[in-house]
Amino acid sequence: MTSSGPHWYLFDYGMVISTAPAPEDWRLLEQATGLRELAAGTSPYWERREDFDAGRLTPAQYWGSVLGRDPVPAEVEALEELDAAQWAHLNPRTLEVLETLHGEGANLALLSNMPEGMSRRYSTESSWAHYFSKLYFSGQMGLVKPDRRIFDRVVAGLGAAPEGIVFIDDNPQNISTARELGFHTVLHRSGTDLPAELAGRGR
Rank of each mutant, 00 (worst) to 15 (best):
T19F: 00
T58F: 03
G182F: 04
P195W: 11
G41S: 11
A156Y: 08
F151T: 02
A22N: 00
A32T: 14
Q173M: 04
F137D: 01
G103T: 12
E197I: 09
E163D: 15
D12A: 13
S65K: 08
T94R: 02
D70I: 14
R121L: 15
G157P: 03
I168T: 01
P195C: 03
Y122E: 08
S123E: 11
R27D: 11
T2F: 09
S126L: 12
G103K: 11
W26Y: 14
V76Q: 00
S133E: 12
E116A: 15
F132A: 01
W46A: 03
S65D: 08
P59C: 04
E75R: 05
S18F: 11
M15Q: 11
G5N: 00
H7F: 08
D51L: 13
P71S: 05
F183H: 07
A40D: 15
D70N: 06
T124Q: 13
R203D: 09
P195Y: 08
M118F: 10
A129M: 10
W8E: 01
Y131V: 10
P146F: 03
L108G: 02
L38K: 10
L181M: 15
G34L: 11
E116K: 15
R153E: 15
G202F: 02
F183I: 11
P23V: 13
M114I: 15
E163A: 14
G5H: 03
L181N: 07
P73L: 04
T185S: 01
T192W: 06
D83P: 03
A196H: 06
G14A: 15
A54G: 15
M141K: 08
Y45L: 14
Y136I: 07
Y131M: 03
S190Q: 09
A160T: 02
T177H: 02
T42Y: 07
H89F: 04
I168M: 10
A129S: 15
S43I: 07
I175S: 01
T58A: 11
D83N: 15
T94I: 09
P71Y: 10
D12F: 04
L82D: 02
S190C: 00
A22M: 08
E81I: 12
T100H: 13
G117K: 11
G191I: 06
M15A: 12
I17H: 01
W26P: 12
P172E: 00
R36P: 02
D51K: 02
G14L: 10
E163M: 03
S112Y: 08
R149T: 14
E30L: 12
G139P: 07
E104K: 11
R56I: 08
A39N: 07
L38P: 07
L28K: 12
A156V: 14
F183T: 02
A106L: 04
A32K: 09
F151E: 01
I168A: 06
V186F: 03
P92Y: 03
